[in-house]
Simulated scan of single mutants.
Amino acid sequence: MLEAGLQTGQMLTLIIMAVALGMDAFSLGIGIGLKGIRLLDIIKLSFIIGVFHIIMPLLGIFTGQYVSTLLGGVATTVAGALLLLLGGHMIYSSLRGEDAPSFNHRSLFGLLVFALSVSIDSFSVGISLGMFATDVLLTVLLFGFFGGLMSVLGLLLGRKVSKGLGEYGEACGGVILFTFGLLFIL
């Protein structure tokens, strides 16, 4: 009976952590969705984010078995800096109009940068989990599922809202990304 309670508690903890890590993907999704995005791109980007939410904590868990928690703050700062750069570029692009090339979320580089920016904190969480006994497969699958799900929800919400914002959608999305980047750094 006690073991079943512990397993339920551990599962609930992992789900809460997975949802919290997925919130980055949700906020990024809103920002990108505000810029305007096709359904096929939503599926591709969400899939890549889900995969990164599996790979990054897995790498973190293995690294956490050997490295101290010092790296956790560095990973969060890097994620914040990436979001600041992406958000700043989106704001700049929207203010310059068609003259400035927009960051292409459809390119392989764009997909990887977006996925990395929201999943790098999963690496630092993985480091912490690597210092404790955790079910590795269950943990990374939950993180991947919720990372992908939250990004789909954010992208769809941003896409729906962008229709009402028109040309200001990209600037609003940039402000959201920039704000989350600041929150990561501070």
Rank of each mutant, 00 (worst) to 15 (best):
E3H: 09
G5A: 14
L6R: 14
Q10H: 11
Q10W: 08
Q10S: 13
L12R: 08
G22Y: 06
G22V: 01
G22S: 06
M23P: 02
D24H: 04
F26A: 01
F26Y: 07
L28Y: 00
I32R: 07
I43P: 02
K44C: 03
K44Y: 09
H53F: 04
I55A: 09
P57Y: 06
L58S: 12
I61S: 03
F62N: 08
F62Y: 15
G64P: 06
G64W: 05
S68W: 02
T69M: 12
G72P: 00
G72C: 13
G73H: 11
L82H: 09
L85Q: 02
G87C: 08
I91W: 04
R96S: 15
E98H: 14
N104F: 10
L108H: 05
L111F: 11
V113E: 07
F114R: 05
S119I: 05
G126W: 00
L129D: 03
T134D: 06
L141N: 06
G147Y: 08
L153H: 02
L156H: 02
L157H: 01
K160W: 13
V161D: 03
V161W: 09
E167T: 10
E170Y: 00
A171W: 01
A171P: 00
G174S: 00
V175S: 07
I176A: 06
I176R: 05
L177I: 01
L177R: 01
F178E: 04
T179Y: 03
F184E: 09
F184V: 00
I185D: 00
L186K: 07
